[in-house]
């Protein structure tokens, strides 16, 4: 009996030690090529591979989880996971409540994707995902904003003619444009908003931020991050 108790105590103790190094990563799982759920039902994409690599370099044991975009920040603060890795652009308003690591994707271009080259993106109806920096940008431009909860629906709205164009990260839209056989085209100039994509952390987790930043810097320095970007975003992907 005593042995059993001791064993349980030891196990509990070791579990306690191990838990200090387990980092839970949360993603949305609906934003290819950044992150998506592949056909096996696993998190996949650029951020999956990047996240695993960062964890390896920082000697952290990482597990993956998915969360709705809407509640991804409140759940981070509530401690349900430790890192947001969901193609989240670094913005001032987000920086007020969470802290960001160094960016691992350069300030990316956002672009308008439309069904015809002469689509009116200045005053027409433009769709965007609710709660994104692109939605805020469209609201401030002269265009009429049409908001959908998922990125997929914003593109569907252009296909079925509900919106003249969709405004989103160019990297997200590019596959739709290339695979549409000319039905969908980019319109107007690319617009750079946001401060690049970074990992979102609780402001109190300074130690974790340090470890992750070091790993990201190392990946930038040896070119492995650029190689990953090339792999997932093709030659058009922005490099460091």
């Amino acid at each position: 009996m005593k042995k059993l108790l001791l064993a349980t105590a030891l196990m509990a103790l070791s579990a306690g030690f191990a838990s200090a190094d387990v980092v839970r990563l949360a993603t949305e799982g609906a934003y290819p090529p950044f992150n998506f759920i592949d056909d096996k039902g696993e998190v996949a994409g650029f951020e999956r591979e990047f996240g695993d690599e960062v964890c390896k370099r920082a000697a952290l044991e990482c597990t993956w989880t998915t969360n709705e975009w809407d509640s991804i920040i409140p759940n981070l603060q509530s401690g349900n996971y430790d890192v947001i890795i969901a193609g989240m652009s670094i913005t001032d308003e987000r920086s007020k409540v969470i802290t960001f690591s160094d960016n691992y994707y350069p300030p990316a271009a956002s672009a308008y994707l439309a069904a015809s080259a002469d689509a009116d993106v200045k005053t027409g109806i433009v769709s965007a995902q609710v709660g994104t920096i692109q939605a805020a940008y469209v609201a401030e431009s002269g265009a009429t904003l049409l908001e959908f909860p998922t990125p997929d629906e914003t593109v569907a709205a252009v296909r079925n003619g509900e919106a003249a164009a969709v405004f989103a990260d160019k990297d997200y839209l590019r596959p739709f444009a290339t695979e549409s056989n000319g039905a969908l085209v980019f319109v107007g100039e690319d617009i750079s908003i946001g401060g690049g994509v970074g990992l979102g952390l609780r402001q109190s987790d300074t130690e974790l931020k340090g470890k992750l930043d070091t790993a990201i810097k190392a990946m930038k320095a040896d070119g492995s991050l650029n190689a990953l970007i090339e792999k997932y975003f093709g030659p058009e992907g922005l490099k460091f």
Binding site: I125, S127, A139, T144, L145, L146, E147, E162
Partner: peptide
Amino acid sequence: FSGFPALSQ
């Protein structure tokens, strides 16, 4: 919440 998109916020 589920069905229809919001126009002009």
